[in-house]
Every structure is written in C-alpha cells, then in structure tokens.
Amino acid sequence: MTALAPPRLPTILPLGLARGALELRRFFRSRETVVFTFALPTVLLVLLGSVFGDHAEAQGVTSSQVLAAGMIAAGIMSTTFVSLGTDIAGDRDDGTLKRLRGTPMPAAAYFIGKVVLVAVTTVAQIVVMLTVAVAMFDLSLPDTAGDWLTFAWVFALGVVGCSLLGIAISSLARTARSASAVTQLPYLALQFISGVFVNPITALPTGLVVTASFFPVKWMAQGFRSVFLPDSMAAYEPAGTWELDRVALVLGAWCVIGLVLCLTTFRWRRGQDG
C-alpha cells in the first residue's frame, strides 16, 4: 500500500486572514470598544465643528472645514495607535500572547490578523468622519486624481506608522487597565499641539509647533488639509506651503522608527512572567 502523504499545513497568509476574521468578530462583539473607537474622533469633530461654526478662515473656507480635514488624522490614530496599543496590551495581560506563542501558529499570522483589523476599522472610521464632515460642514471631497493619490499615500503611511507605534507602545503598559492611559495621553496631547484642535496651527506657540513637527500627527493633518482644502489655505501652514515632500519624508521615517521599536521592544509575555 502507498503511504498517505501528510496533510499540508496552512501557510502564513491564510492563517493570518483567519486570525483577522477572528479579530474582527471579537472587536465588533465588544460594544464598548466599538463605540469608543468610532465615537471619540467623530464626537469631537461634531462638537468642535459646531463650536467653530461658520467662522471664516479664508474666502470660502470655514474653521469647521479646516478642523474636519485635520480630524481625519485623529481618526486614523484612534483606530491604529490607540486601538492596537490597548488591544495588544490586553492580549498580553490575559495570557493570549503567551498561549499563541506556544502554538504552531507563526508569529506573523498574529500580526497579519491585527493588520486586517486595523485596515477594516480605519476605513470604516474615515468613511464615517467624511460623511459627517460633508453633511454637517460642507466639506468638499477631492475632485482630481492627484488629490486622491495624495490622500492614498498620506493615509497609507499614516496607518502603517501609527500601527507600528501602537504595537510598540503596548509594551509600556504593565496591565490592560493601564494601557488606556498610556495610549490616550499622547493621543490627545498630539491633537492639540499638532494643530488638529487649534486652527490655524500658527496660532500655537512656536515651541509647540516645533515639538509637534517631530511627530506624525502634524504631518498627517497637514497632508489631509492639502487634499480637502483649496491651495490658498497653504498660507496658514507654518512654512506657507503644504510641504508634501516633507510630509512623505517624516511619515516614512516614522514607519521605519516604528518598525525598529517593534523589533526591539515587543514582548510576548508580561514582565512578571519572565
């Protein structure tokens, strides 16, 4: 008799996609997580946009529209940096990471699952925010292929960079309970100093603007403003231009920095587990 060939084990990609489907089911079954993840940036957009109202920043552009364009960066950071930072810290705290590390599942499959989760939730978040911005504040969607291309690469670099930083910062949280504070503090602080909540950004003290320039949020918001606002609004940026080449450079650098931080700091176990 011919010996039966051993069954072929699934490759990394199918395992990762299956893990991603599991991550999505777990995410959407947690009502508190879904509401907080999607509600915070959108509620802030509605509240602050209503406060700013139709105050004109320039001819044909209102403060609420400037806010709405920059708030897309806040939405991306919420579904990537904040969500991954707290979620992975929770997986480490309850022993999920330790158990997964002891199974034949490749480590890459776990992170592919997180990528699937982030991709779906981030796209959904941006769709919600743009719908609100267009309906409530008359934000105009891009009407040229060039603007959509700029939106695509700013979005992609922002998602990758913030996701990697979220994975890295998860190692700073000692417990799942402390992870929220560890992620929310830089999230909210960066929105203020990066000109998302304060428009124009040149109204901020120079020291804060310089500090914000070292972090990705300021450049994401600036890139999105270049997409959704007329070119005349570039005069309200610190350099007087959109500086899209520098936006790409800084966001690309943070992707590299985030990857290095992940590789050097990520822990599969809690500190007390050894």
Rank of each mutant, 00 (worst) to 15 (best):
D93R: 00
D93T: 02
D93Q: 02
D93F: 07
G95W: 05
L97E: 00
K98D: 03
K98I: 04
R101S: 01
T103I: 00
T103G: 00
P106W: 00
A107M: 00
A108Y: 00
A108E: 00
Y110E: 02
Y110V: 05
F111N: 01
I112K: 02
G113S: 05
V116N: 04
V118I: 10
A119S: 14
A119K: 10
T121P: 08
T121K: 07
A124S: 12
Q125E: 12
V127G: 03
V127E: 05
V128R: 03
M129G: 13
M129A: 11
L130N: 01
V132H: 09
A135K: 10
A135V: 14
M136Q: 15
M136C: 15
M136E: 14
F137M: 15
F137N: 15
F137E: 15
D138T: 14
D138M: 12
L141T: 06
L141A: 04
D143Y: 00
D143A: 07
T144I: 02
T144D: 01
A145Q: 06
G146N: 05
G146S: 05
D147R: 08
D147A: 13
D147M: 06
W148I: 06
L149V: 15
T150M: 10
T150F: 08
F151E: 05
F151Q: 01
A152D: 11
A152V: 15
W153M: 15
F155H: 11
A156E: 11
A156Y: 09
L157V: 13
V159D: 04
V159W: 06
V159T: 05
V160E: 03
V160R: 07
C162E: 08
S163D: 01
S163F: 06
L164W: 03
L164N: 04
L164M: 09
L165N: 04
L165Q: 03
G166R: 00
G166T: 02
I167E: 02
S171T: 06
S171W: 01
L172A: 04
L172C: 05
A179M: 02
A179C: 04
A179Q: 04
A179R: 01
A179G: 05
S180K: 09
A181C: 05
A181S: 11
T183C: 08
T183M: 11
T183K: 01
T183N: 07
L185A: 09
Y187I: 02
L188M: 10
L190A: 12
L190V: 09
L190F: 11
L190H: 06
Q191I: 13
Q191F: 11
G195W: 11
V196S: 10
V196I: 15
F197A: 13
F197K: 08
F197V: 15
F197D: 12
F197C: 13
V198W: 03
P200L: 13
I201S: 12
A203K: 12
A203S: 14
A203H: 09
L204W: 08
P205G: 06
T206R: 13
G207V: 14
L208W: 12
V209A: 14
V210L: 15
V210H: 14
A212I: 10
S213M: 13
S213Y: 14
F215S: 10
V217W: 09
V217M: 14
A221E: 09
A221V: 10
Q222I: 15
Q222W: 12
G223A: 12
R225N: 07
S226K: 06
V227P: 06
